[in-house]
Amino acid sequence: MKLNRYIFITTSLVILILVATSLNSCEYLVESSKGDATRATESNQVISLQKDEAKLLVEASKYNLDVIELCNIIEEEKVDEDVKDLVEEIKNEQLAVLEKYNEVASENVISIPRYSNLKQEEISKLNDSVSLEIHLKLLSSKIQNQKELLDKLSDTTNNRSFKSLAESANTTLEKSLDKTEETIKIIHTDS
């Protein structure tokens, strides 16, 4: 009788331990799958943010290349030397910004364009235009668009290199905008 009681108690304890372990592992599996879902969601959000950052950097670099191309077009025209000098300064500033774009892009494994996005119709309009002011207003618009994209990039990112790029490039872009306005004033005083 004692043996039956001993077997009964031992079997009951083993069954109780197995049931408790099973419940505990089920709870672990449920928590684990919730954790996996949370990690997947966070991962997707990070990927989405990185895609947005890359798009903004690519768009800003396109405008940058357009500004450089516009500067080349203006330099080729018959304009006052003061105007050419200011446009050359703007172009050199934009080349420095492009270099920063390339550095940040390579650090973050982003491919940015290497060619201007100006449409052939825009270039031919500029070459046919008599008014240099149209060129400069388009130049100013491209610089302003580039600045707005960098502001948006700075606002949406937590990446230090993007924030640093936006800050330094925006300072340079402000100088370029001021020089564009100065060039337009020179044109108006010469007229």
Rank of each mutant, 00 (worst) to 15 (best):
M1N: 03
N4E: 12
N4A: 09
N4Y: 07
Y6D: 09
Y6W: 07
I7F: 07
I7Q: 02
T10C: 08
I17W: 02
L18A: 02
S22W: 08
L23Y: 09
N24T: 11
N24F: 05
S25E: 11
S25K: 11
E27R: 13
Y28M: 01
S33M: 15
K34S: 07
A40M: 02
T41G: 02
T41F: 14
N44L: 09
V46Q: 05
I47S: 13
I47C: 09
L49A: 06
L49T: 05
K51I: 14
D52I: 15
A54W: 00
L57P: 07
L57R: 00
E59L: 03
E59W: 04
A60I: 01
N64H: 05
L65C: 00
L65T: 08
D66F: 06
D66E: 02
V67M: 00
V67A: 03
C71H: 07
N72Q: 07
E77N: 02
E77D: 13
E77W: 15
D80F: 10
E81T: 11
D82I: 06
V83W: 10
K91A: 01
N92K: 01
E93W: 05
Q94E: 12
L95C: 09
A96I: 10
V97A: 03
L98I: 00
E99Y: 05
K100G: 11
N102W: 06
N102M: 13
N102C: 00
A105G: 07
N108L: 13
V109Q: 13
V109H: 13
I110E: 00
S111L: 15
I112W: 08
P113V: 10
S116W: 01
S116P: 03
N117M: 08
L118H: 09
I123C: 00
S124K: 11
L126R: 05
L126E: 04
N127P: 01
N127A: 05
S129F: 06
S131H: 14
I134H: 14
I134K: 04
H135W: 10
S141W: 02
N145Q: 15
L149S: 04
L149Y: 08
L150N: 04
K152Q: 14
S154D: 07
T156Y: 15
T157D: 06
N158Q: 01
N159P: 01
S164D: 15
A166Q: 04
A166C: 01
S168D: 04
A169P: 12
T171Y: 10
L173V: 03
L173H: 04
K175D: 05
S176F: 05
L177H: 11
L177T: 15
K179A: 09
T180L: 05
T180M: 07
H188S: 14
H188P: 06
T189E: 01
D190Y: 15
D190I: 15
S191Y: 15
